[in-house]
Design a protein around this nucleic acid. Structure first.
Lengths: 149, 149
DNA sequence: ATATTTGCAAAACATTTGCACGGAA
DNA sequence: TTCCGTGCAAATGTTTTGCAAATAT
């Protein structure tokens, strides 16, 4: 919940108003380590503030992506989830067992790849989307013990 | 259209039957350099074989993704497109002006990143999704001439 | 022959929009 | 007091399913 104050500030700076619904949605996002679908987000936000509507969830997601602190996660099945990633971060690794997301800063390794692509094909990269899928440390430990999920 | 024979073979091996509809859809996919949405794919396939239904397009996409030769492309707006990428290829770069896709093989640069992630967090990467967005060489040239797409 | 594949209509979902009211600034 | 934000209902779009007829093997 550490960035709450900062985000609220940024939202105000951009002319967004702070409402109970947005507080609730923001709260849920900041305390979740895995990507939530709009529907899940809606459900959880309601636990904190009764009157949140699904439409408001969509609109808040839009605002937070616009702000740059929320990340859309693509699942292989085509659905979307959203995770809070904060500022300056770029890459995520999604655990396919527990769904947890690890966020880590962008790296020069990708820059090297972009450079190589440019030299070989002339393609100029403006942005990239890098998403790892695998198993987190905790779930690996759990796998060893033979305990499922 | 070079891989047509190979793909048909693979499909048969898996028990899929070859039909006119699938031929048409496969033809369109193999001759397109940019990702097509199911609707676009449907439209184009109809030009080759009148009676293709949209549902069949969805089902064929499913089969080809299952085969591993078709790649789902995530657009920032949440829509999906599909491109033929062949076997053993992993990464794509999408031109945001003409939509063309460049496919290139996976690289050790990403492996290095995976290794780093593993050492620092214990996360074991099984798969990754890397997608570049930028401007291809041709569109850059066109930009210089001041001619808009 | 016979099991798969098909197109269609309808169902199921996900996302967006129009609108009058309520609430933050 | 002035807009922005809200929830609702309805519109839009996309993807999936049920089914009997058609077809590849």
């Amino acid at each position: 919940m550490k960035d709450m104050h900062l985000i609220v500030q940024k939202l105000r700076d951009r002319g967004y108003r702070m409402t109970a619904a947005r507080q609730a949605i923001l709260n849920v996002l900041l305390s979740s380590t895995r990507p939530l679908s709009p529907a899940e987000l809606h459900q959880r936000a309601r636990e904190k503030y009764q009157g949140v509507g699904l439409v408001t969830v969509y609109r808040t997601i839009e605002a937070l992506i616009d702000l740059g602190v929320l990340r859309r996660v693509h699942r292989e099945d085509g659905c979307h989830g959203y995770v809070y990633v904060g500022y300056g971060h770029r890459h995520i690794a999604v655990c396919r067992i527990c769904g947890k997301v690890i966020v880590f800063p962008g790296s020069e390794d990708v820059l090297a790849l972009e450079e190589k692509l440019w030299q070989e094909t002339g393609f100029r990269v403006d942005d990239h989307l890098l998403q790892f899928v695998g198993v987190c440390a905790e779930c690996q430990a759990r796998e060893k013990e033979g305990i499922q999920q």
